[in-house]
Simulated assay, not measured.
Amino acid sequence: MSPVRAALNLAFADGKVTSDFAWREDLKPIKNASRRRELYLDRKQRRNLIAHAPPEIAPFLQCLSMLPLRPGALAALQVADFNARLKAIRIVTA
């Protein structure tokens, strides 16, 4: 949740949202929950998640289920990263 909190706080700091009320309390770190969780959704679970997701995020979730990318790397992709001639996507990592 740290990256999510950081993104939301940045949006607040940049003035893209008017308040941090929605996540200030609800997204506080959970005590003693510092280790990474290993979770994998099988194909049926992924399809169910995508089918029930809001239409604005469903394409993003579908891409995440097809490409071995972190959400931030997928979100950073631009149309210019796609080479139609080679049918390839250029993925730049920091």
Rank of each mutant, 00 (worst) to 15 (best):
R85N: 09
A22M: 13
R43S: 15
A6C: 07
F82W: 15
S19L: 07
L69F: 01
Q45D: 10
E38K: 10
N48H: 11
L10H: 13
S2C: 07
L61Q: 03
P55W: 05
I30D: 08
T18I: 07
S2F: 09
F60R: 01
D42Y: 05
R35D: 14
R36I: 12
A76L: 05
G15C: 08
K44R: 11
L86C: 08
K16C: 10
A94C: 08
A53N: 02
T18V: 10
A7M: 09
R36P: 01
F82V: 06
L10E: 15
Q62H: 09
D20R: 14
P71L: 00
K28A: 14
P29W: 01
N9Y: 09
I91T: 06
V17K: 04
I89R: 06
A75Y: 05
L74K: 03
P59I: 04
H52Q: 11
P29H: 06
L67Q: 03
F82L: 13
K28L: 15
Q78R: 13
I57V: 12
F60P: 04
P71H: 00
R47M: 10
L67E: 02
A88P: 03
Y40T: 11
A22S: 12
L74P: 00
L41P: 14
E38T: 12
I50R: 00
A80C: 04
L86E: 14
P54D: 15
L67N: 02
D26Y: 08
A80I: 03
R46N: 09
A58W: 02
A33I: 01
L61C: 01
P54H: 07
G15R: 09
R37L: 15
A33E: 12
V92P: 00
I91L: 13
A58K: 04
S65V: 04
N48K: 09
D42L: 04
L64R: 03
R5T: 12
L27Q: 05
L64K: 00
E56I: 03
F82H: 14
R37Y: 12
D81Y: 05
N32R: 12
K87I: 00
P29K: 05
P71D: 01
R70P: 00
R36N: 11
E38W: 13
L77E: 01
R35W: 07
P59H: 04
F60Q: 03
Y40Q: 10
A75P: 02
R24Q: 13
